[in-house]
């Protein structure tokens, strides 16, 4: 096939330029939106039932996906680790290697990406539909601020849910690694656990992973509610906002992950 080369490239560049501008434009507006949400937090905290309900909804939506993903990521880590480490006769360290990979990187990142795809899209489309069906305008007319009543509890729910889901992902991942390494590949069980226990540090590894997941939870929840709240209030607009939320969250999480890793590693 002979597609016209130059215009094709130009279109690609243009497209890339638009995406970048879109991304950074969202960045600025998103920060303002975050301030409005933060100003509404006292309202949300005074109604813990609304927040707990959102933690529950977001958690339940993502739980099965997170658990399955954690299991298989743990298993593949053990498989790859075994393949490489056995060349040096270091299969015993496999538990440590898998746990470190999960707790420091894969747990927070993959959980945030899956959360964006499952609970985040649900948030964007729910808020977008509320806008399209005049529910948000209706609240305004009842002298109720939708940012307080709708957006803030959902944001807070997501921020709380992501670290919890990350811990669950990590636990399932370690279980998957154990399953693959000890049960399938016959690595010594005592070595598997003792190496892990000896080398994985609670503060440097586990805690730094949790710190990351808190940042990711803020980013994923913020972008999901932001895109939903600011969507064009039509069926098409809601769909587009949902897609944008996932794309922007994925990008943000990956960039943020690099920056946080540099910061957390540089700190010690």
């Amino acid at each position: 096939m002979t597609a016209p080369r130059v215009p094709g490239w130009r279109r690609l560049l243009l497209e890339a330029g638009y995406s970048l501008r879109d991304f950074f434009g969202t960045f600025g507006a998103g920060q303002l939106f975050l301030l409005r949400i933060l100003a509404s937090l006292p309202y949300a905290l005074a109604r813990p039932r609304l927040v707990i309900q959102q933690v529950y909804v977001a958690g339940v939506q993502s739980l099965v996906v997170i658990m399955l993903a954690g299991l298989f990521v743990g298993m593949v880590l053990a498989l790859q680790g075994h393949n490489t480490l056995s060349r040096f006769g270091a299969e015993d360290t496999i538990g440590m290697v898998a746990a470190l990979g999960l707790v420091r990187e894969l747990g927070p990142v993959v959980t945030a990406l899956l959360f964006a795809g499952r609970a985040g899209t649900a948030l964007s489309s729910e808020i977008g539909l509320m806008k399209a069906t005049d529910q948000l305008a209706g609240m305004e007319m009842m002298a109720v601020d939708p940012i307080k009543r709708v957006v803030a509890p959902r944001f807070l729910g997501g921020v709380i849910a992501v670290p919890i889901l990350t811990l669950i992902f990590n636990a399932m991942g370690i279980f998957g690694a154990w399953l693959e390494a000890v049960i399938v590949l016959g690595v010594d069980e005592g070595a598997f656990w003792s190496q892990m226990q000896a080398q994985v540090d609670l503060q440097d590894d586990v805690l730094s992973g949790i710190v990351k997941s808190v940042f990711f939870g803020v980013a994923a929840s913020l972008l999901a509610v932001f895109e939903g709240y600011n969507c064009v209030p039509t069926a098409e607009g809601v769909g587009r906002a949902t897609t944008r939320a996932v794309v922007h969250t994925s990008l943000t999480v990956l960039v943020l992950n690099f920056m946080l890793t540099a910061w957390l590693l540089g700190g010690n």
């Binding site: 069906t133 005049d134 209706g138 305004e140």
Partner: peptide, 20 residues
């Protein structure tokens, strides 16, 4: 002030705008 005014106001949207 708008919110204070709207507490004295009822509005019926065309589609009802009930919270789903």
């Amino acid at each position: 002030q708008l919110f204070r005014m709207r507490r004295r106001v009822g509005m019926l949207f065309q589609n009802g705008a009930l919270l789903t």
